[in-house]
Simulated scan of single mutants.
Amino acid sequence: MQDRFLKSIAKLPEPLATAIVPLLDKDFAGHIDAQQLAELQAASKMELNELLLALLPIAAALARPPISQFHVGAIAKGKSGDIYMGANIELPGEALFHSVHAEQSAISHAWLSGESIIEDIIVNASPCGHCRQFINELVDGGKVNIHLPDQATAPLSHYLPYAFGPSDLDVTEPLLSKQQQTLTLDSNDPMIIEGLDHAGLSYAPYTKAYASVVLETKDGATYCGRYAENAAFNPSMQPMQMALSTMARHNRDFSEINRAVLIESSKGVISLVGAAMDALHSVAAVELEHIVVEPE
């Protein structure tokens, strides 16, 4: 079991703790599939909602909050029945807007894993306005059920009435809808090929700044992030932050970053290069490779 979960395990009911320990091996990065979840439910004898709330300490253990020291864990449950954990990430010395909120982390985890609909968000603290707006960008965002400790479950529309969202800006395919932009570049570089794939799947209906980041560690492992825009603009999730969140979930230290690539469309009305460089330089002494691609 990974050391980062030792304190969290102590907070779980004993039957659940015993059942989940085998899952928390060196490769665990916050994903529990539907079959594993059913087995945890059977072993713990908990109702599903009770189980999901009980798992929040495991999600919170993924957090890296050097500024606030406040660990927030979130779980996104997809239509597939799988659950995806996420946690807050703060970048030392950088402006607070570079932070990743736990709900963003969990949702991006589900998105990168191929989920198209999120039905439930479970979180150990009430979602802030930023996160409510981010959730609202999802397919049927207003219907996503929000689960909080010691509170009745309610849809996002309860927490964000009279919401402003994608439909107000004539966007008909919200976040998690299948996106497919054609971005090509003649390259045999595996990182660039991977980045092109993710940039093509990014969500940027407001600026057309389709983009991705690929981070490579010294052992050759890669961690990706895609741009995810928001109708309210500020809650948009940068691809660098998504890639760093992915690294954190996989228990990798940011100092292990050996190479970083940002790929973005030439047709975007903004560029993400400045924000990506600032975030990267706060955690690693690596220069950002910036590749601008002409979309087809």
Rank of each mutant, 00 (worst) to 15 (best):
P66Q: 12
H31C: 09
L37G: 08
A38R: 11
K26T: 13
D25W: 04
A63E: 10
D27W: 02
A19H: 06
L91W: 06
I67P: 04
A38G: 03
A43I: 07
P15C: 15
S80C: 07
I83C: 00
K11M: 13
P15G: 13
L51E: 02
S68P: 10
G93F: 06
A54Q: 13
A38C: 04
S80E: 07
G93R: 07
A29Q: 01
E94H: 10
F28T: 02
L23R: 11
L56P: 15
Q35E: 14
R64C: 05
Q69A: 12
L51I: 10
Y84I: 00
S44K: 04
L53I: 13
A59W: 02
L23W: 04
I83G: 00
K77T: 04
V72R: 06
I75W: 03
P66R: 07
I75Y: 01
A60V: 05
E47W: 00
L62H: 15
Q36Y: 00
I9F: 06
L52E: 14
K26R: 14
I20E: 10
G81F: 07
A60S: 15
A42K: 14
G30K: 06
G78W: 09
P57N: 11
E47C: 00
L23N: 08
L16T: 08
A42I: 11
A74Q: 01
A10N: 14
L16H: 12
A60T: 06
A63F: 03
S44P: 10
A34I: 03
L37R: 14
D25A: 09
P92W: 04
I67N: 08
V21Q: 14
A43R: 05
L24S: 06
G93V: 10
A54H: 10
A29C: 12
P65F: 00
I32M: 07
G93T: 12
E47V: 04
M85D: 09
I83N: 00
G86M: 02
S68V: 08
G30Q: 09
F70Q: 13
K45Y: 05
N49M: 02
P65E: 15
L91N: 04
A61K: 02
I9M: 11
A59P: 07
